[in-house]
Amino acid sequence: MNIFRFAGDMMHLLSVVVLLLKIHKMKSCAGISLKTQELYALVFICRYLDIFTGFISLYNTIMKIVFLASAFSILWYMRSHKVVRQTYDKDQDTFRHYFLILACMVLALLVHHKFTFREVMWTFSIYLEAVAILPQLVMLQRTRNIDNLTGNYVFFLGTYRGLYMLNWVYRYLTEVHYHHRWLTWISGFIQTALYADFFYYYVKSWRNNEKLQLPA
């Protein structure tokens, strides 16, 4: 495992920790899109179908369990915790995420490397992950006061996939059997590009020492 991949995974982990910290300590999920969180839970379920059958490394298995467990605990907090769920801003979270699921499923059935159940589900998870942040980005744009933890959460999440792209370049250059990943690369590039606008305003607000606010 190269440093880009590891740093990417750590950023991903950090984003989840930041979000859970906000929810658990502040007992608030204000500004967080439940729809994006539902999409991530679905992404992890479909991608980690092999969690108990295909062993890669202890690191991989543990990380998969951590991502699945954290995704479901976030969902539980936002939907069922008696204090946290009242801070969820349902009216601002209006993205039609079922259309994303449908579109990604159709695309996965049409464009994949291999037509097997596991491979199509894996491909679906790659497509869905690329666009899962959209409800959250829309919600951020509507939120007047984005708190630091929410801003950092999205920033770490974007950095994670950016680092994965460096990892793919590195692996492409250093590994012999690493040439049929174009599907992941295109999706990963789109996923990272979606954050470009957010990154711009995040860095700008950080440099000017101002509160983060996205233009409507």
Partner: peptide, 10 residues
């Protein structure tokens, strides 16, 4: 299987 075994990333 080369493709399925290649899913070694998270």
């Amino acid at each position: 299987d080369e493709i399925e075994d290649s899913h070694d990333e998270l």
